[in-house]
C-alpha cells in the first residue's frame, strides 16, 4: 500500500504536526513501507475472533469510592506551564 503526499498532509493535520517540506517525502516513503509491511496481517485468519484490547483477559474495571482526595496545588502544577496568568492557562484566542 502506497500513501501520497496528500495523505501525509492530511494525517499530519489531523495529528497537529507541522512538517517541513523536507520531511514530507520521508514520511510518504516510510509510511508507505510500514503499511505495506502491516498489510501482512491480511493473511491472518481472524473470522470469528474477537479483538483483544487488553492483555489480561476477564478483568473488570475497579470502582473508586466517591471521595475528594485532592487539595489545591495549582501553583506547583503551573510551574511547568509555558504561559499562565491569573491561574489560567493561556492560548491564542479561540474563535468559536
Amino acid at each position: 500500500m502506497s500513501l501520497t503526499r496528500t495523505d501525509i498532509e492530511n494525517i499530519a493535520r489531523l495529528a497537529r504536526l507541522e512538517l517541513t517540506e523536507a520531511e514530507i517525502p520521508v514520511y510518504v516513503d516510510s509510511l508507505s513501507r510500514i503499511f505495506a509491511f502491516v498489510g501482512e496481517l491480511d493473511r491472518a485468519p481472524t473470522e470469528g475472533i474477537s479483538p483483544m484490547a487488553h492483555p489480561l483477559p476477564g478483568l473488570a474495571q475497579r470502582l473508586r469510592a466517591d471521595e475528594v482526595t485532592e487539595t489545591d496545588r495549582r501553583d506547583l502544577y503551573q510551574r511547568n506551564a509555558p504561559a499562565a496568568e491569573a491561574g489560567l492557562y493561556l492560548v491564542p484566542k479561540v474563535i468559536e
Binding site: E85, A86, G87, L88, Y89, L90, V91, P92, K93, V94
Partner: peptide, 14 residues
C-alpha cells in the same frame, strides 16, 4: 475557555 479580559488570548480553566 474564558475570552474576557485577555486581549488576543483565551484563558483555560480546567
Amino acid at each position: 475557555s474564558l475570552h474576557e479580559g485577555l486581549p488576543g488570548l483565551t484563558g483555560i480553566d480546567l
